[in-house]
């Protein structure tokens, strides 16, 4: 079971690499925000899986706080995009 979770953490890391490609390539600013949102969700998933691997609940707590903070960040970036600052 531990091995399967480690492998899935590795695969999720590769997917973060793919989203980073879109973050760098993205032609417009909203594309980059979409890629950033994907990276945030994948990081939360990785933290949850690592919390199960190491049997530490602290990882999942950090994941909850990270999800809330990334939500606030996404909302603020969307607000700036709406006013055409970037």
């Amino acid at each position: 079971m531990i091995l399967a979770w480690n492998i899935s953490v590795f695969v999720l890391g590769l997917l973060i690499f793919g989203a980073t490609l879109r973050l760098m390539m993205g032609p417009t600013a909203p594309d980059r925000v979409v890629a950033l949102d994907a990276i945030n969700t994948l990081v939360v998933a990785i933290m949850i899986v690592l919390g199960a691997v190491y049997k530490q609940t602290v990882f999942v707590d950090v994941a909850i706080v990270y999800a809330l903070l990334s939500f606030v960040g996404t909302l603020f970036i969307a607000r700036f995009l709406k006013r055409n600052y970037l």
Binding site: V33, L75, A78, L81
Partner: peptide, 11 residues
Amino acid sequence: NATGSHAIAQA
């Protein structure tokens, strides 16, 4: 995620 994606699309 649902709320954030709505905000991005609106922006």
